[in-house]
Design a protein around this nucleic acid. Structure first.
Length: 596
DNA sequence: CCCCCCCC
């Protein structure tokens, strides 16, 4: 028994009417060129028939609907299927958000029902394609101002199967021209319906995050950019403005505000750098317009988190971006660290984050967020787009692009705070981050130097870290000490002024004293226990390593200042210190710098 | 067209 098609539904939908769960037949199916070759998700365009008309539609990729595709693989494109469809119609493009098979191709003998003609617009006289009415006037966002009057309610029956909750019906249909009066509110479509296949659209979005302006310079050129996170009921997307667009939009865009945003280039998103849930991201171009929405529209949500519990982080691949929420149980002191690549100094603070999955994770804050953080009141911390790393097992870093919120007013935060105050604060929770200074731990990368070579460690752009048991073979004592600035954590080499004072260029100050500092080079031989047995005489795997102050002091068993004094007073004893270090064994945690 | 996000 063949199901009835919803005759006339295509024309009705295209002309602004709404149809609940119309039934169509799929008369053709075409796999599109992958939008993002690195992503397995394919994109399909279907030719639907309501018995009267054909219409080309897109399947939304973000939906679990992809599983339906298995029912009509490209091989059997010519077969006919009937689908019970929930559709969302937006600017000249119908995007299928959900569908149910109600009849197989076999049940209609693989034949096309009726004699459908391509739908070519409401006036069928001279519209060559369904896109043929592009020549009609389009809403002019510069003239239009939102009045709060709602347009066509798409009234989607089935919520999008997504963690983001229900897919509200606040999207409007635009652009068919029929009910498009100039001066009416800008019509918008959902973020989730944006694709590279459609280039005229308007979305109504809240800016939930806005970056500073950043400049870049590389082999492909240089320029400046800023990026922002945009959210509506249907989802989220990241947008970036370059160069001229920075000048045009940076001051217009205000975090938290709602905008009508029209036109831009959609391109595949690189998920490596964001936790924004969209296969695409948006690049502003010369046609892009962005109009503030005059009145606050509370139907446009704010930041959308997709939290993972701390225990789940153990099973999440490192070097990905995650959303996390937890209670700050403890926080370390602010530390000043010097960035190797730029010699820049930044503040960092490690925070222990706990949640009701019963686990603790270490999260690093940087800069002002590190300096201003107070864990004594155990605030709830929510982060969108924290970087998960494998350091110490699993740990987190809050990036410049992350959204970092303290005590956000969301249900999950209140629940966590309640859990912490009533029981969590007294529980002994297990950390998924190795505590600092520990030599062991499941994640320690034990290597011999031979293995370091075999694995090409240190050949990437980033440094590699490994741990080796090694024997000191030789301690080079020449030029191993220098006169350093006496001020704390400066360590800059001072210049002797000749009058008994010492100049530090970094501090721009003269001092009456200096401190000795060590910068040591040791030849070492790395071993693993079974490796040493057969290779102890083989010194091909020796390695020069550089040790800074604290490590060198540990190896030599003397602090730098006493060693400096010894050098001046007793040359033989000074030399003996270096001799004594030879053939002693240590466990070294080493950094092998990349990009050498 | 960025995608650096630091340290152990």
């Amino acid at each position: 028994m063949a199901a009835q098609l919803s005759a006339g539904a295509i024309a009705a939908i295209m002309e602004g009417d709404k149809r609940d769960k119309p039934t169509f037949q799929i008369v053709a199916c075409k796999k599109m060129v992958a939008a993002n070759p690195s992503k397995p998700g394919d994109r399909y365009r279907l030719l639907l028939s309501d018995g009267n008309h054909n219409c080309s539609v897109m399947l939304a990729t973000q939906l679990e609907l992809q599983s339906h595709i298995k029912l009509f693989p490209p091989k059997s494109c010519d077969s006919s299927y009937q689908l019970h469809l929930y559709i969302h119609c937006s600017y000249q493009v119908i995007v299928i958000l959900d569908a149910t098979v109600v009849a197989s191709a076999d049940s209609v003998n693989n034949e096309i029902i009726g004699n459908p003609k391509l739908y070519q617009g409401s006036s069928t006289s001279n519209q060559p394609t369904p896109q043929g009415n592009q020549s009609r006037p389009v809403p002019n966002n510069k003239m239009a101002s939102p009045s709060g009057k709602q347009g066509f309610q798409s009234n989607i029956q089935s919520p999008v199967p997504s963690s983001k909750g229900s897919f509200g019906g606040n999207f409007s249909r635009v652009g068919t021209g029929l009910n498009n009066n100039m001066g009416s509110p800008p019509k918008s479509q959902p973020i989730s319906s944006l694709t590279p296949y459609q280039n005229r659209w308007t979305i109504k979005v809240r800016v939930t995050n806005k970056s500073d302006i950043r400049t870049w310079s590389n082999s492909r050129g240089e320029g400046k950019l800023f990026s922002m996170d945009l959210v509506d009921q249907s989802g989220e997307i990241r947008a970036t403005a370059f160069k001229d667009q920075v000048d045009k939009f940076y001051d217009v865009v205000e975090k938290g505000k709602v905008y009508f945003l029209s036109k831009g280039t959609l391109k595949p998103a690189n998920k490596q750098y964001t936790s924004i849930q969209n296969d695409y991201e948006l690049t502003f171009n010369s046609e892009t317009t962005m109009m503030p929405c005059e009145e606050e529209d509370s139907t446009i949500p704010n930041v959308q988190f997709d939290f993972r519990s701390i225990t789940q982080l153990q099973d999440t691949n490192p070097d990905t971006m995650v959303d996390v929420i937890g209670v700050a149980k403890t926080a370390g002191e602010v530390q000043k660290v010097t960035i190797k690549s730029s010699s820049r100094e930044v503040s960092k603070r490690d925070v222990s984050l706990v949640d009701d999955s019963g686990k603790v994770v270490n999260m690093t804050l940087w800069g002002k967020e590190a300096e201003g953080f107070d864990a004594s009141v155990h605030p709830v911390v929510a982060v969108k787009g924290a970087r998960l790393s494998s350091f110490g097992g699993r740990s987190l870093s809050v990036l410049m692009s992350s959204i970092f919120q303290i005590n956000p007013d969301i249900p999950r935060a209140h629940a966590l705070k309640g859990w912490y105050d009533s029981e969590g604060c007294r529980q002994e929770l297990q950390s998924i981050s190795e505590s600092r200074g520990m030599g062991g731990g499941g994640s320690t990368n034990w290597c011999t130097f031979k293995e370091v070579q075999e694995q090409n460690l240190g050949s990437g752009e980033k440094p590699d870290y490994f741990t080796a048991k090694a024997t000191i073979l030789f301690a080079k004592k020449e030029n191993s000490m220098y006169m350093a600035c006496p001020s704390e954590s400066c360590n800059k080499k001072v210049i002797e002024n000749g009058d008994g004072t010492f100049r530090c260029e970094k501090c721009n100050k003269d001092y009456t004293e200096f401190q000795h500092r060590l910068l040591r080079r040791f030849a070492v031989f790395a071993t693993l226990d079974e490796y040493v047995k057969c290779n102890v005489a083989d010194l091909t795997d020796n390695q020069w390593i550089t040790c800074f102050q604290e490590t060198a002091e540990a190896i030599l068993g003397k602090n730098a200042n006493s060693l400096g004094a010894l050098r001046e007073q007793d040359d033989a004893a000074f030399n003996q210190v270096f001799q004594d270090a030879v053939f002693s064994d240590f466990i070294f945690k080493m950094r092998l710098d990349g990009d050498m």
